[in-house]
Each structure stands twice: as C-alpha cells, then as structure tokens.
C-alpha cells in the first residue's frame, strides 16, 4: 500500500506535488536551523555573561589561542562553503558528476578543519589548558581563565560535532548521487545539506572572532 508504483519518483505519497514537498523540506530545514541558533545561543549567552564578569581573564586566555591556526581554519571553512554552494548549483543543473566532485571537496576541506582543530586541542592538552583538576594557566591564575577554556571547549566542541554530522551527511549524499537519485527536477537533499553546512560555517564565523580576536588587546 505504501509502496508507490513508480519507485524512482522522489515524490512521497503524502504530498500532492513536488513543489509542495520542496517547500516543506525547505521550511523544515530553516526551522531546524533556527532551533540550532537557539541551541548555540545559550552558549553565547553564557560566554557574554562570563566575559563581562572576567574581562581580564578572558583577555589573557583569549590571547593564548593560536590565531594562525584559527585564521587558517576560517579560510578552510569558507572555502568549503564555496564547494558546498557549487555542489548545490550542480544539483540545480542536474550534473551528478558535479555534485559528487564538489561534495568530495567539501568533505576534504571539512576534514582539514577538523584535523587542525584536533591539533589545537592536543596543544591545549599538553599545556594543561583543558579545564578540570589538572588545569593550570600560570599567565592568569584564577577562575576566569578556566571558565574561558571551559566555554572554548564546549563551543568549539559542539561546533566540531556539527561538522562531523555534516560530513556523515555528505557521504550519504554522495551515495545517493552515485545511485542517480538526483536530477534537474529533484536535488532537494543536496540543497538542504547546503543550508546546514553554511549554517555551521556561520557559527564558526561568530566563534572565531569571539574566542580568538576580540579580546586580544595590547
């Protein structure tokens, strides 16, 4: 009963036409991204509250982050947004090859980002900057700097988790594309993934200046 006679048709049984299905997907994705904004929003709120409470400690701790790796990662992520956009464009023109090629690039760039992030994390481990009993930050002893690093790990960790989910999604899309599921009329999943990926990038565009840049005085 639930099986549609035409297995190839992307139209699900409960929609009247493809446009309705596309509209629904798009609205669903946007609504989901709004929940994501609020999810990160609480973390940003905590960041703002503690930064106002401990400006000096946050400044000292922030100056200690590796701005070169952070800037490099920002560039990598912006580039991945470009390749993602190209994949969405390829979807609109119905080029399966273009989709797969650009998604692979996006995965590569996303993995580079995560690799660099892992290097940054391991530096922090070696320098005892991971919050917890072994934390020590001799440049600025006191609670504020530990709070900064707690939020640093919570925020960048959650962001990295979103990247990992995104990369898994990209692999699934490549599989779907390889099976020939997308054509000029239908490439909605690629487009939705594009929205998600750009959102994750934008989160980083906020994280980078807040964590690495704005408190770097002298």
């Amino acid at each position: 009963m639930a099986k549609t006679s035409d297995k190839k048709s992307p139209l699900q049984h409960h929609f009247v036409h493809l446009n309705q299905q596309y509209d629904a997907s798009q609205m669903g994705m946007w609504a989901f991204l709004i929940t994501e904004i609020l999810f990160f929003g609480a973390l940003f709120t905590a960041y703002i509250v503690y930064r106002l409470m401990y400006p000096a400690a946050f400044g000292a701790a922030s100056s200690h982050l590796d701005i070169t790796l952070g800037a490099f990662n920002t560039a990598v992520l912006i580039a991945s947004s470009l390749t993602m956009a190209l994949a969405v464009h390829a979807g609109h023109t119905g080029s399966t090859r273009g989709i797969i090629k650009n998604l692979i690039w996006t995965i590569v760039l996303g993995s580079v980002f995560l690799g660099v992030k892992a290097i940054e994390y391991s530096h922090k481990f070696h320098e005892h900057l991971v919050p917890g009993p072994s934390f020590s930050f001799p440049l600025y002893p006191g609670a504020g700097s530990e709070l900064f690093f707690s939020l640093y790990f919570a925020m960048t960790g959650l962001h990295a988790f979103h990247m990992v989910i995104g990369i898994i999604g990209l692999f699934i899309l490549i599989g779907m594309a390889a099976k020939g599921r997308f054509n000029q009329e239908y490439s909605t999943p690629v487009e939705m993934m594009g929205l998600y990926w750009h959102f994750v990038d934008i989160v980083w565009i906020f994280l980078f200046p807040l964590l690495y840049l704005v408190l770097r005085h002298h």
Partner: peptide, 25 residues
Amino acid sequence: LADGSTVTADDKYIRRSILKPADQV
C-alpha cells in the same frame, strides 16, 4: 583598576579581592 575600569569597593569586590585577587587588580 589596572584595566582602566572602575569598581566600587563593596562587599562583593572585597570578597573577590581576597579569593581571586588577580581578577581585579
């Protein structure tokens, strides 16, 4: 304060200066 800001020396400030002196020099 050393960072250019000004605070009032109230209970909260004195308490914090005893426990976390580095925060508000």
